[in-house]
């Protein structure tokens, strides 16, 4: 394959990837049934999560970085 051919191929590939990526859709608020499912929450058992974070900070000196507030509910 010539150098030009390779370049054309590369450019086409890059364009294709770009277009696929741009195809991402926003999930609308009323389409979040699956996201709001309790099984989507990382720490479903709040007490257990608190306990885990307690011993992690006590034994391992690690704390923080345990996800964000709100879990999986996509309500707002």
């Amino acid at each position: 394959m010539t150098r030009t051919g390779r370049m054309v191929l590369l450019t086409l590939a890059a364009l294709a990837v770009a277009m696929w990526t741009a195809g991402c859709a926003t999930v609308q608020p009323w389409e979040r049934a699956r996201l709001a499912n309790p099984c989507m929450v990382f720490d479903y058992n709040g007490g257990q999560a608190d306990f885990a974070s307690h011993w992690q900070s006590a034994r391992e000196g690690s704390s923080g970085g345990f996800g964000v507030q709100g879990g999986g509910c996509g309500c707002k």
Partner: peptide, 22 residues
């Protein structure tokens, strides 16, 4: 040329994102 192609792709990507229905 690789840089040009990547740059072009980035422009297309940005355009695609802003022009998406959402």
């Amino acid at each position: 040329r690789v840089f040009t192609a990547t740059g072009l792709a980035a422009v297309v990507l940005l355009f695609g994102l802003t022009a998406s229905p959402a």
